[in-house]
């Protein structure tokens, strides 16, 4: 009797609970989960691409991110490269001061967190994509050259890789073509361009 009464008296309780469970989970999955999954780690010093690529310095990507003669992409330049210009502070910024004092003078490499670090078994040749396929840096890396600050490096607590590998959007659906650096992104582009590659083409 009581049960039936309750059921009649509060017909929305079940639905409400169902709905709140549903909604709660959506909140957890879409908003709280990313916060828990990723841990923010500060970069050792701040860096502005814009200052370097802008009118002041007018540098191109390749000036620092070099593809060597043997086709290896050297990635983030060594501190010796920075020292070519910053042997002593040029401007007034605290970051530059830190660069000179903590890294250039003791000749110590800057322990950057690398947004695009891939697992060791993935092989990627910048040389063939840039020199043969004529891809522009921005097509994969986005307008990073115009950024004034380094964004926060977020490391995935489970996999240990940067958030940028999966993409900013937790759903995995990129909001920009350059977002995300997982294998399906590679495959997508290769398929579109009619490449039929074996696994070992991109795995070492």
């Amino acid at each position: 009797m009581l049960k039936r009464k309750l059921k009649i008296a509060l017909p929305s309780t079940g639905k409400f609970l169902f709905g709140s469970g549903f909604a709660g989970m959506l909140v957890i999955g879409w908003f709280i989960f990313p916060m828990v999954l990723y841990k923010s780690e500060p970069q050792p010093i701040q860096f502005s691409h814009k200052v370097h690529t802008g009118e002041q310095a007018g540098m191109a990507c390749e000036d620092c991110h070099v593809i060597s003669d043997d086709g290896r992409f050297l990635g983030i330049p060594a501190v010796a490269k920075c020292a070519e210009c910053h042997s002593s502070p040029i401007g007034e910024s605290a970051n530059e001061k830190s660069l000179v004092e903590n890294y250039i003078i003791p000749n110590k490499e800057i322990p950057w967190h690398i947004y695009s670090r891939q697992p060791d078994n993935a092989y990627f040749s910048h040389a063939s994509h840039v020199r043969l396929a004529h891809l522009k840096c921005e097509e994969c890396h986005g307008p990073i050259g115009e950024s004034a600050r380094l964004k926060v490096y977020q490391v995935n607590r489970i996999s240990g890789y940067s958030r940028d590998i999966w993409g900013e959007n937790i759903s995995g659906i990129p909001s920009h073509p350059w977002e995300g650096m997982k294998m399906d992104r590679c495959v997508h582009c290769h398929e579109k361009n009619g490449r039929r590659d074996g696994c070992i083409e991109c795995h070492k």
Binding site: F18, S20, G29, S159
Partner: peptide, 28 residues
């Protein structure tokens, strides 16, 4: 019902797929 609602919601979030993906990367 609460659990049922959460379960339905759970599969509509990226959580399970992302955890699966990340753990498989972790194993490597």
């Amino acid at each position: 019902k609460l659990i049922g609602g959460s379960a339905v919601g759970f599969f509509l979030t990226p959580l399970p797929y992302k955890v699966l993906d990340d753990s498989s990367i972790w194993t490597q």
